[in-house]
Simulated assay, not measured.
Amino acid sequence: MPDAAIETALAHWAPRLIQNGVDYNDMTSTVARTATWADWLPQWNRTADEQAAFAREADAAGHALTAGQAWRRASVNRHFGKFVWMLDTDLAAEATRVSVQETLAALARLDPTGERLEVPFADGTVYANLRRPPGVDRPPYVVLIPGLDSTKEEFFFFEQSFLDRGLATVSLDGPGQGETGLVLPIRPDYEVAVSALLDLLTGRSDLDHERVGVAGVSLGGYYAPRVAAHEHRVDAVVGISGPFRFGDMWDDLPPMTRQTFVVKSGARDDEEGRRLALALDLTGQCERIAVPALYVTGRLDRLIPWQQTQRQAAETPAGTFVCFPDGNHGVSNLPSKARPMIADWMADQLGAGSAADRRAAA
């Protein structure tokens, strides 16, 4: 019987694992042999290693597609193994680094446009993955922002929903996230990292810099409105299950989520973590947003109450609020409804569209 921490993790995030590419069979077999939270990352590493071994076999046989798909599965398995798992930060950091390389191996085989970006920033480097839609010379693009312990390696299928509609994607590990977070802690003014990214991209002729969107999930749903409030180059923003003020629900967060914030923010203890979480506050920010904004959440969200996201929309001049009655955190239990809606909305705002949409309009 799994311990309470494992039961909590599955109750909150099992649909999210599946939505973002964890094979259901990998999940069930891994959970079945995991007795305690301490076993969680080691057992997910074992599952990821099995997929990586299969990927190497496929590579050796010259089967690039099969290898790419296996590398993607290895990466996302390993990512979710160290997701909000703070029991051994060195082991979690190593899993982060390996997951990054596995996603790059997957992109090299599955998407020839995939490109790793290294963005000079403050006292470190911010990392991102760029992907471009086929058949579009200068596509608009969307910066995709993860949450508290999410990373760009989690976004392969989220990216695809935008790519299919003619939008390029730039998935970002900002301060406190993924490989960037190994050096740079969480900061409330996340927009400075996106500004540095946009500065780097400005010199590229293969992207349309007059049509730029930003979309963030969970804590990224706080970061994305911050970006839109301060970065004039953003033309549309989506926030998914984001908090208005993260510290408001501190006492109700799962213990592993609070511990993750403490570690990722550089706080000394839980009380300092609470204080830093209260600094992630959109008071006076949403009213500065001058572009179309879509806020999406689920009424059954047990991590970020839907009223927090609703407040974001209410205080944004051009804000639209969509709440799925049966949706959970990130609406990850309804991906066939939420993701197409979000991607269609962004494509409409940026004047993009899929090849099928363009043919229908012709």
Rank of each mutant, 00 (worst) to 15 (best):
P120E: 13
V214Q: 14
P317K: 15
F155K: 08
E287H: 05
D248H: 03
V31W: 12
M86F: 09
M249L: 08
T28R: 04
P185D: 11
R138K: 13
T297G: 14
A168V: 13
G353Y: 04
Q307A: 15
E315P: 04
W44C: 04
T66W: 06
D39Y: 07
A55S: 02
L107N: 07
Q177S: 08
A168R: 03
A93C: 03
P112C: 11
R72T: 09
R226N: 14
D326T: 12
A318P: 02
F244T: 04
N20H: 12
G176P: 01
V296C: 12
W13V: 11
G298K: 10
A64T: 05
G68D: 00
P175T: 07
R116C: 05
E315I: 02
D49M: 09
L300S: 15
E159Y: 03
A318D: 10
D189W: 10
Y223F: 15
A343R: 15
F80D: 08
P175E: 08
V262K: 07
D269P: 05
L198P: 03
R73I: 14
A313W: 03
V212S: 01
G319D: 03
R138C: 09
F162L: 14
Q69W: 11
E7D: 05
H79R: 08
W44E: 02
A362D: 10
R233Y: 03
F246E: 02
D348H: 07
E115P: 04
Q308G: 13
E191L: 06
L104P: 06
Y24M: 02
R288V: 06
V194H: 01
G351A: 06
L201H: 10
T66F: 06
A5D: 10
A193V: 01
S161Q: 12
L163F: 01
E272W: 12
D281M: 06
M1E: 12
E94F: 01
R116Q: 10
D206I: 08
R138M: 06
G203N: 14
S218T: 08
A5N: 05
A67Y: 08
G216R: 11
L110H: 13
K152N: 13
F156M: 15
A352P: 07
A106D: 14
A93M: 00
T283R: 02
G327V: 04
A279Q: 15
D357A: 11
H12Y: 12
A122K: 09
H63S: 15
R109T: 05
W13G: 06
A52D: 11
E271N: 03
S241N: 00
W37K: 05
T89P: 01
